[in-house]
Design a protein around this nucleic acid. Structure first.
Lengths: 124, 124, 124, 124
DNA sequence: GTGGTCTAGACCACT
DNA sequence: GTGGTCTAGACCACC
């Protein structure tokens, strides 16, 4: 469910935060369902529990999950979050389009690519 | 020509590498034309010469520029690099589209955004 | 394991890169084994950590090693690199033979020398 | 007759020294024949006259050429020099063989390569 | 503890 | 003047 890329320059805790956010936003993890415990996940991914803890605190801070004392962490049901996540995709899209334009790639070309990549995913 | 964002997570030397690569790829810096000297650019951007040196040596390793002893650094004429640089933009686009689809954004919506962002840059 | 020749024209960081590449290619350093830390090696060779850092980052760029954040640098398992490294020796051999022939050294003589030098190393 | 590689890390004056030594040793430049003047060669190779001057001084110091006031530089007839030049080839051969052995290349393999490269040159 | 980035300042070789 | 190497010392993020 969660794959860590140790060679990536993105911090591990950030990879985890990102991945869980995605899972929550597109409904794989349902509202009020329980997340794996810090220790369990740490063992499973064979990384330091502190790192998981940091990821969970950030998720809590951003409103994606809520802790229940002595029971564990649960998925929050806040709908507003999906919008925020989408915004970050748009932002990334904006940056990429900007870079492409600087390199002299035409808008039509990029639109064509978007269509192609979008289909690609569906077929897979 | 080159603007540094000191707040950015991306290291300064990488910002410089990226910027110069872009300038070379889209033809602003022509083949065999001379780059600003390490010291000159350092003063101009008010950063340490070592940082410029690091950027230049990476550009050299990647084949974008070549040094001539006692004279300076010059733009390499390798055409293949331009294609490779563009490919990296396409790859980034592909990933973003994938993420967007996972979040349930429609293809048409993303195409519209691309058109919008592309125009945005032109108008600025 | 690594000896630095401070008199040599070849920069220190390059001597380190070369030595470690050799150790990796001939299997002394196995895939996924950990390299000495930047600071440790710096103390051991009594040179500046920055110089080790430079060597390591070049090894990374060339695909010989990979860093894991907060843990250290590890040997990459890429087999293709070993062939490439050997090719560079063949190329150097080719150039030397060419030069020797230009000076009128016979092929048999050079072959004899190769045998001699090869044994020399073994006896040492 | 003399080709300069501006991208090479070997200094230009050294490239010139090396090349002229080779031309003298294998008899292309005969004893007591005149070398091109500093200025002529500088123009021809489009490099700074100082650099040519430096190369000529080193050649003189090593006994390869001798200057005649007001006339120019001439090739020395010293036979001993050829031996010295050959020694440098042997030294380079020794280093290459050593590197090859470190990388696990067998002696027989290197001998075979030497034979191959030697023939290559003859056929060309 | 680890790697990575940056600064300041020095020295060298080459043109 | 140019690029290139090295040192010393600082700071940061990550584990």
């Amino acid at each position: 469910m969660i794959a860590i890329d140790f060679q990536n320059r993105k911090p591990i805790y950030e990879q985890i935060v990102d991945r869980i956010e995605t899972l929550i936003v597109n409904g794989v993890l349902e509202a009020d369902s329980q997340l794996p415990s810090v220790r369990t996940l740490a063992v499973e991914l064979s990384i330091n529990p502190n790192t998981i803890q940091k990821a969970y605190s950030i998720l809590e801070q951003n409103g994606y999950i809520y802790p229940v004392k002595g029971r564990g962490n649960f998925v929050s049901g806040n709908e507003e979050l999906k919008l925020r996540k989408k915004d970050s995709v748009y932002e990334s899209l904006r940056e990429t389009v900007k870079k492409g334009r600087e390199l002299g790639i035409s808008g039509d070309c990029m639109v064509a690519k978007v269509r192609e990549y979008y289909q690609e995913e569906i077929e897979e």
